[in-house]
């Protein structure tokens, strides 16, 4: 079942085309990642879907209905975790969560239960009476998430929720997102951290310059790259005349020697690393540290756009 559908969306800021005939479809139960460099249009797309932004052209449907500023019935099914922390500095952790939950849930007892669950979910049990200014960056982000999801929405938008968060809090947040998904929520998650998207998203749309350049599962996207494995071996004094022989090995697509490192790229096949190491031993080549890297979404991005995702 389709939860969000965006067709041919165009959004212009004067001369700049922020979204260029962009289309995506998100199904129920997915953790759908929007991956792209800063300024690629991820947040703009999210804000258009949420009916915060005007757009020039296209169609947006949420739960099969057109999303408008006064679509309150639709909005009640949605939770939003914004990139900027949106809480009241003058209210405590518990009061903040209760306030935002109360914008969706009127029943006091039910709300109390939801607030308790949200506090537990983000691990803020020891901080319920703290004011936001007393919280660390990571805890503040967790509060921001709790305010967005306390009312148990069916569809959750998360816009870079882990920006400026320490690794421990980031892991907590990512685990929490997976748990929300297990509980039945559909999640649309934007990030420019490919590792996060790889870790939690069931399907990913890579966006660049306002266009969807690739959509698929993690494996489907990686299959778009000609490289499935990169082998890097530290060799102090390598005879480069042996490079053509290495290129002849099964599944090897390229072999180079740069800065005391032999770099071998492979496409498909298994046991590629063992095969290369056997070759080196047989040719009496001494080597040091060995790395084997699987392709990343950055390689996919590089393959399609010719530039790094982090650019």
């Amino acid at each position: 079942m389709e939860v969000v559908r965006v067709d041919n969306l165009v959004k212009r800021y004067k001369e700049l085309v922020a979204l260029d005939h962009l289309s995506i479809s998100v199904n129920k139960g997915e953790v759908f990642g929007l991956l792209g460099p800063n300024g690629s249009g991820k947040s703009t797309l999210m804000n258009c879907i949420l009916s915060l932004l005007k757009y020039s052209k296209g169609e947006i449907k949420v739960f099969g209905q057109e999303m408008k500023p006064d679509s309150y019935d639709l909005k009640r099914k949605i939770g939003v975790v914004l990139q900027n922390v949106a809480v009241f500095d003058e209210l405590t952790v518990r009061e903040n969560i209760d306030y935002f939950c109360g914008l969706y849930v009127t029943d006091k007892n039910l709300r109390k239960q939801y607030v308790d669950e949200a506090i537990k979910f983000v691990g803020l049990e020891d901080f319920t009476k703290f004011y936001p200014k007393k919280l660390s960056g990571g805890l503040l982000r967790r509060l921001n998430i709790a305010c967005g999801i306390a009312h148990k929405p069916e569809l959750i938008f998360m816009d870079e929720p882990t920006v400026a968060v320490d690794p421990q809090s980031r892991n907590n947040i990512l685990e929490g997102i997976k748990e929300l998904n297990r509980q039945g929520a559909t999640i649309i998650y934007t990030s420019h951290y490919m590792e996060e998207v790889e870790q939690i998203c069931t399907r990913i749309a890579i966006i660049d310059k306002g266009k969807t350049i690739a959509v698929g599962t993690n494996d489907e996207l990686k299959a778009l790259t000609p490289t499935s494995e990169k082998i890097r071996i530290e060799i102090l004094d390598f005879d480069e005349s042996k490079l053509p022989e290495i290129k002849e090995l099964p599944h090897v697509t390229s072999a180079t020697y740069e800065e005391n490192h032999l770099l071998v790229s492979c496409k498909g096949g298994t046991h590629n690393l063992i095969r290369v190491l056997d070759f080196l031993k047989n040719n009496n080549v001494n080597f040091g540290r060995v790395y084997s890297e699987l392709p990343t979404l950055n390689d996919v991005f590089l393959e399609i756009t010719g530039k790094e995702l982090r650019d």
Partner: peptide, 18 residues
């Protein structure tokens, strides 16, 4: 208002009438 503050944005996307 969403344009004025993150809290405004959060309230604007909430299920409560303006």
């Amino acid at each position: 208002q969403a344009v004025n503050s993150p809290i405004g944005a959060r309230k604007t996307v909430s299920g409560t009438k303006r």
